[in-house]
Design a protein around this nucleic acid. Structure first.
Lengths: 188, 188
DNA sequence: TACGATAGGGAACGATCGTTCTCAACGTCA
DNA sequence: TGACGTTGAGAACGATCGTTCCCTATCGTA
């Protein structure tokens, strides 16, 4: 078996492909980016890209899956640095504030993908729903510990802050949502 | 000047065009709908469509503008049927609940448009921001009367409910947000 | 009735999309 | 060393996009 690509090289190239795709799709929207741009940015040939993923849709789904792991992992790591249950819930919104302030922030990749492809791609729709449900469950886990039944409003405030910051470009909704959650959780 | 089209006919056809475009764009996404589908659904020729609007982008913006008037007008009419200031704010979420339960509900047309075209069309981005700001100001007007400084959390809860109902397809977020707002507004 | 300006339908255009195919180059084993 | 299997680069393909153009039908006017 000649000219074989090692597993390690495959792993590295696949990551480079997902890196390039994620960056391009997030910055420009998914439909606005052609596979040829993904090829140029990733440094791989189209042939190899289509060996990794059967179609663009599969690349999009894989990109969202990997981003979900990184995004929720980063959030969980941030929350886990805080001990007090009440403060842990509030720290979610500190993390959101940092995210909103990042250069190039352009809202929620899943909400954007839903707006673009939710009506036409069943696979993307399922991935978006899976991410949102997982995020809601994370919040539920942290809110439960406070003993207060406020998972839903906390989640809705987080979603409202994300979508509003994404459209306005202003990170202020993170603090506004945080203040509202603090009120829901009662005085410390 | 022969074969002239009357102003009345122009008005009617323009409305039919916007009706067809709005329905198609909302159901399928904007980029997924070709101008030829708009032509077929509206009953107008491409030539006449391009006489009304120089480009697809202008049709999209006009569609969003008209939808904004209708959407916020309907909301305001619903709220104005209620007298008590506290109940007026809560009635926003009753109206949202009705909207979410409509057949074919597929989330917020402006949030979806932002996800699709926010990065590539300055005009669409401006229209989305204008709608969201106008919606926020409506809520602010109604919340002010209660004397409580809760405009931002009420607005964020509304946005969170809209985006969550749109993705999940479940109208429950309207009631959850309403309950949270009721808590923010204090006991009646 | 004959003329001419306009509007209509829809074919056509160039661009670009996602995807596939060609073909030369290369590395590996018989 | 020679044959073969695989790779890479990117040309090519069919489809479809937004937009324009061609040509005929139609109507008001003279």
């Amino acid at each position: 078996m000649p000219a074989a690509v090692t597993d390690e090289q495959n792993r590295v190239d696949r990551e480079a492909l997902l890196d390039a795709a994620e960056k391009l799709f997030y910055e420009n929207g998914i439909q606005a980016v052609g596979m040829d741009q993904v090829r140029a940015a990733s440094g791989l040939s189209l042939k190899r890209i289509y060996r990794f993923f059967e179609a663009k849709e599969d690349l999009v789904v894989a990109m969202l899956k990997r981003r979900d792991q990184r995004w929720r992992g980063s959030l969980a790591a941030h929350v886990d640095r805080v001990a007090d249950p009440r403060e842990r819930v509030l720290s979610v919104f500190d993390w959101l504030a940092e995210w909103f302030a990042e250069p190039g922030f352009r809202g929620c990749a899943w909400i954007n993908a839903h707006g673009e492809l939710g009506a036409s791609s069943e696979a993307v729709l399922a991935e978006v729903r899976a991410h949102k449900q997982a995020f809601r469950e994370q919040i539920d886990t942290w809110v439960r510990v406070t003993g207060l039944p406020v998972t839903e409003p906390v989640y809705l405030l987080a979603e409202g802050a994300i979508v509003t910051a994404g459209i306005s470009g202003d990170p202020a909704p993170a603090r506004q949502a945080r203040d509202a959650v603090a009120a829901l959780l009662g005085s410390p």
